[in-house]
């Protein structure tokens, strides 16, 4: 399957949005959520974890080890206040860029 290039850059945005809407999730949960919403988007795990760790490093999400119902240790990610702020900015930028591109595509 061909992977839209834009996803590379927008993966952090998607992760933040999912975490904002669905509350704390582990890495696999994030993948599953994105894939459940969109049939088109597939998340490469190879990109997801470095992206998550980069978000964590930037203080946009925080992570802690929790125990799942079937007694396994899982790392849960949760959006931070800074992450929400970042999400708003990224989201509005994305919308305006998307709108602008849409306009060009329509009117060119």
């Amino acid at each position: 399957m061909s992977k839209p290039d834009a996803l590379q850059g927008s993966l952090p945005l998607l992760v933040l949005k999912i975490l904002d809407r669905r509350g704390p999730l582990h890495g696999y949960g994030i993948t599953a959520q994105i894939e459940a919403i969109s049939d088109l988007l597939r998340v490469e795990e190879g990109s997801l974890y470095p992206a998550l760790h980069r978000l964590e490093e930037a203080g946009l999400v925080r992570a802690k080890w929790t125990t799942t119902e079937n007694k396994r240790r899982a790392r849960m990610y949760e959006i931070t206040r800074a992450g929400r702020k970042q999400l708003q900015e990224e989201e509005s930028r994305w919308t305006s860029v998307a709108a602008a591109i849409g306009q060009v595509l329509r009117e060119a």
């Binding site: 582990h26 890495g27 696999y28 974890y49 396994r72 240790r73």
Partner: peptide, 17 residues
């Protein structure tokens, strides 16, 4: 070790699904 555990968890969940 932390990272390995996290990835292992991911693979197991995917497998279970």
């Amino acid at each position: 070790a932390d990272l390995a555990e996290e990835l292992q968890f991911h693979a197991d969940q995917r497998g279970a699904d």
